[in-house]
C-alpha cells in the first residue's frame, strides 16, 4: 500500500471533507470531481500542507506526522496551485534538485526538458502555462519516486500536450514498484490511464470503481416517463429528470440490455456518470 486515507475530515466555513481512499503498488488511481469538490483539500492533507481535523493518513506505510524530509524523496508531487520558484530558470533547478534528491538524474532531466521543449535558460515566470505544467511533471518524475501525487497535472494543456504527458506517466508505470494518484477534471484523460477511479462530490467520495468495470458494465439508460415507472430499478444508481423522461445510471447495463431490449442504452463515459451521480437523485 503506497497511500491510505481513512475518513480524513476537514471542515471549512461552507465545505466539509470526508475522504477515504487507497493507492496500491503498481496501480494508477484517479480522483475525479468538479472544481471545489475537495480534490485539492485531499491532496494538501496528504502532503501535510493543511492539517485534517480527524482521520488517518498513511503515506508509504507511515503515519504522515512521522514523515521525514528524506521520506519525501520517495514522492513526486504536482499541485495545481504550487509553482516552481518562478524567478529561477530550469537550469538553476538542477543543483537544487541534486542537493535535495539522492536519485536525481541531471542527464535524464536535461533530456526530458529538451524532448518536451522546455527552455533551460528562460526565467520560469515567463513560461507559457503549458510549459510550466510540463516542467512540474518532469520535476516530479525526475528522482525515481515510488509514488506520484498529481493534482490536475494536465490543467492548462492542449489535447496534444495532454496526450504526451499521459504517455510519460504510462512510461513511468512500467516499473511495477511505483504507483500514481492523479486527479483531473478531464475524465477522458483518466479513462485510459487509471486502474481505478474515485469520484468525489461536495467533499465526499460518492463512487469507487475499477475503470474497466466503469467502462464495461456501467451505462446510461434513456427512459420515457412510462418506461421509468415500469422498469426494474434494482441496478440503477442515480436518475435525473429530463425533458424526454429520465436519464439513469446503471452499473449493470447488460441486465437492462437483455431484459429490456426496447430501452435506449448508451455506453456513456465517465463525464456522463459524474453528471448523473452529482446532479441526479442517488439511490
Amino acid at each position: 500500500m503506497l497511500l491510505k486515507l481513512e475518513h480524513v475530515k476537514k471542515e471549512y466555513d461552507s465545505f466539509k471533507l470526508d475522504c477515504s481512499l487507497e493507492v496500491k503498488k503498481g496501480q494508477v488511481t484517479g480522483l475525479v470531481g468538479s472544481n471545489g469538490a475537495g480534490k485539492s483539500t485531499t491532496f494538501k492533507s496528504i502532503l501535510g500542507l493543511i492539517f485534517p481535523d480527524e482521520g488517518n493518513i498513511e503515506l508509504l506505510g507511515k503515519d504522515i506526522s512521522a514523515i521525514t524530509a528524506s521520506d519525501k524523496e520517495e514522492i513526486g508531487v504536482v499541485l495545481t496551485e504550487a509553482n516552481v520558484c518562478e524567478y529561477l530558470t530550469a537550469k538553476d533547478l538542477i543543483p537544487i534538485m541534486k542537493a535535495m534528491y539522492k536519485d536525481f538524474s541531471t542527464e535524464d532531466y536535461m533530456d526530458k526538458c529538451k524532448a518536451y521543449g522546455i527552455p533551460l535558460k528562460k526565467i520560469i515566470k515567463d513560461f507559457s502555462t503549458g510549459m510550466k505544467a510540463k516542467l512540474k511533471v518532469i520535476l516530479a518524475m525526475s528522482h525515481n519516486a515510488k509514488l506520484l501525487i498529481l493534482d490536475e497535472p494536465t490543467a492548462g494543456l492542449d489535447v496534444i500536450m495532454r496526450n504526451e504527458l499521459l504517455d510519460m506517466l504510462r512510461d513511468y508505470m512500467e516499473n511495477e514498484e511505483r504507483g500514481i494518484l492523479i486527479s483531473s477534471h478531464i475524465s477522458t484523460d483518466l479513462e485510459g490511464l487509471c486502474d481505478d477511479i474515485y469520484m468525489i462530490a461536495n467533499g465526499k467520495i460518492i463512487m469507487h470503481e475499477e475503470t474497466d468495470v466503469l467502462l464495461s458494465e456501467y451505462g446510461v439508460l434513456k427512459l420515457t416517463k412510462e418506461q421509468y415507472e415500469t422498469v426494474d430499478k434494482a441496478y440503477i444508481l442515480s436518475s435525473k429528470e429530463e425533458k424526454f423522461g429520465y436519464l439513469c445510471l446503471t452499473n449493470q447495463k447488460d441486465f437492462y440490455m437483455e431484459n429490456y431490449p426496447e430501452i435506449a442504452i448508451e455506453k456513456g463515459n465517465i463525464d456522463d456518470f459524474i453528471i448523473l451521480m452529482e446532479k441526479g437523485v442517488r439511490k
Binding site: L47, G48, L49, T68, A69, S70, D71, K72, E73, I75, V77, L79, E81, A82, N83, V84, C85, E86, Y87, M100, Y101, K125
Partner: peptide
C-alpha cells in the same frame, strides 16, 4: 517574497524538506 510568489511555498514544502528546516 520570491518563495511566496505564485504558490512557490507549496512547491518548496513538497520537496524533501520540512517547515522546520
Amino acid at each position: 517574497s520570491h518563495d511566496d510568489f505564485n504558490g512557490g511555498m507549496l512547491f518548496i514544502l513538497t520537496l524533501p524538506t520540512t517547515r522546520k528546516i
